[in-house]
Write a protein that binds this DNA or RNA. Sequence first.
DNA 1: CGAATCCATTGACGTTCGTCAATGGGTCTG
DNA 2: CAGACCCATTGACGAACGTCAATGGATTCG
Lengths: 110, 110
Amino acid sequence: MVLPERERGVCCPPTLKARPQKVEQTSEILKALADPTRLQIALCLRDAKEPVCICDFTATFDISQPTVSHHMAKLREAGLVDVTKRGIWSFYRLAPDLSPAARRILDAIG
Amino acid sequence: MVLPERERGVCCPPTLKARPQKVEQTSEILKALADPTRLQIALCLRDAKEPVCICDFTATFDISQPTVSHHMAKLREAGLVDVTKRGIWSFYRLAPDLSPAARRILDAIG
DNA sequence: CGAATCCATTGACGTTCGTCAATGGGTCTG
DNA sequence: CAGACCCATTGACGAACGTCAATGGATTCG
């Protein structure tokens, strides 16, 4: 490993390549996926062939129904997920207009 | 879009493909990267050819030195980053034994 | 040795997060 | 219509987070 030579009192600020706006946006995506429950939900939707009903998630995870609803709202706000209502059911799927950044991250996981 | 037919009162819990342990581990990686400052630091280290000195980060970001130190500790705990001390300086780089999961996620970003 | 520099740790504070209980609006069935 | 079912929202609470000020250890320079 090569360590740079340094002079006391002199710093060499690295050039930040990513635009601040993009950093913020990527951070939002990561934040939405950083919870174990939401991560499993997102992976499930990524691999699902059909939209998945909320009631299936409440049956799967050991958390209350309002909490599942809360997590889905987070995923919605992050633009990762999309909801369609049919009768009494709400079906979720990955957002059809998922950003390329989000798509790359999702594909890199699991 | 094809919505599944459903019968009242019947749920179809999806099969969770990822192991709980792996979900937890991936979640830790995402959590470490989900802060804008840490994300920029991680990207910077990913693209750096040489280890980067802490003092360069404190010169770059508009946060105090203890906060930078705190963020580096988070990245260390997540196993993303590695520190080498030389005299009064601490140099950070991407962990040489970075997990494949972390590597894929980092490569998918920005 | 004494002063200056670099950096980690600690303690504190306000904010955000994950969760639940309670509530309410929709929708279907009898 | 009345009851059952599905789901979102609200309010509340403890835990975790991001930040800073203060402190202290380690190292280098004069």
